[in-house]
Amino acid sequence: MMENDRRPLHDRVRARPALELPSGPQGFRWRTLRDTDAPLLTVLAERMSVRDHPSWSESLEEVEDQLGRSWFRPATDGVLCEGPDGAPVAYGTVTMPPDPESLVRVFLGGGVDPVHRSRGIGRELLAWQHERARQLLASSPSTLPAWVMSHAADLAPEHGALLRRQGFEAARYFTTLECEVARHANQAAPPAPEGVTITPFTAELSERVRRAKNSAFVDHWGSQPAGVEQWESMVGLSSFRPDLSRIALVDDEVVGFVTTEVNEDDWERQGFSSGYIGLVGTVRPWRRRGLASALLGAVLEAYSLEGLERAVLDVDTESPTGALGVYTALGFTPTTRDVAYRIAY
Results as ranks from 00 to 15, higher is better:
Pro242Ile: 02
Asn263Gly: 06
Gly236Ile: 01
Arg287Met: 14
Thr260Trp: 00
Leu330Ile: 05
Val258Cys: 14
Leu296Glu: 01
Arg269Cys: 12
Phe272Ser: 11
Glu309Asp: 12
Leu279Ser: 01
Asp338Glu: 03
Thr317Val: 15
Val262Met: 05
Thr321Cys: 10
Val315Asn: 01
Gly278Val: 02
Leu279His: 01
Ser273Val: 12
Val299Glu: 09
Trp231Ile: 05
Leu324Arg: 09
Arg241Asp: 12
Ala302Ser: 15
Val339Gln: 11
Val339Gly: 07
Leu291His: 00
Asp265Lys: 09
Glu264Ala: 14
Ile343Arg: 10
Asp265Pro: 02
Ala323Tyr: 15
Thr259Ile: 09
Ser274Leu: 03
Gly322Val: 05
Ile277Glu: 10
Ser304Asn: 15
Met234Leu: 12
Gly275Asn: 14
Leu249Arg: 12
Tyr341Thr: 00
Pro320Ala: 02
Arg337Cys: 11
Asp251Cys: 06
Arg269Val: 12
Ser233Tyr: 01
Leu291Pro: 10
Val254Ile: 09
Ser233Phe: 05
Asp243Arg: 02
Val235Ile: 14
Leu308Tyr: 10
Ser233His: 04
Met234Arg: 11
Thr333Cys: 02
Tyr276Cys: 13
Arg310Glu: 04
Ala329Ser: 12
Glu306Gly: 06
Arg246Met: 15
Leu237Tyr: 04
Leu308Ile: 12
Ala344His: 07
Glu268Trp: 01
Asp314His: 05
Glu232Arg: 15
Val280Arg: 01
Ser238Leu: 11
Val315Ala: 02
Arg289Trp: 03
Thr333Tyr: 04
Arg288Gly: 02
Glu318Asn: 13
Ser245Asp: 08
Arg337Met: 14
Ser274Val: 04
Gly256Phe: 08
Leu249Cys: 11
Leu295Tyr: 01
Ile343Thr: 08
Asp243Ala: 09
Ser245Met: 06
Asp316Gly: 13
Val326His: 07
Val326Thr: 11
Glu253Lys: 05
Thr328Glu: 13
Glu232Pro: 02
Ala298Gly: 13
Glu253Ala: 10
Val235Asn: 01
Asn263Lys: 03
Ala323Asn: 15
Ser319Ala: 14
Ala302Arg: 15
Tyr276Leu: 15
Ser239Arg: 13
Gly271Pro: 06
Gly278Ile: 00
Pro320Glu: 00
Pro285Ala: 07
Val339Asn: 10
Ile343Leu: 10
Ser238Met: 08
Arg284Lys: 13
Leu324Thr: 13
Glu306Met: 07
Arg287Val: 09
Ser245Asn: 05
Phe257Tyr: 13
Leu308Phe: 13
Phe257Cys: 07
Tyr345Cys: 11
Gly297Thr: 06
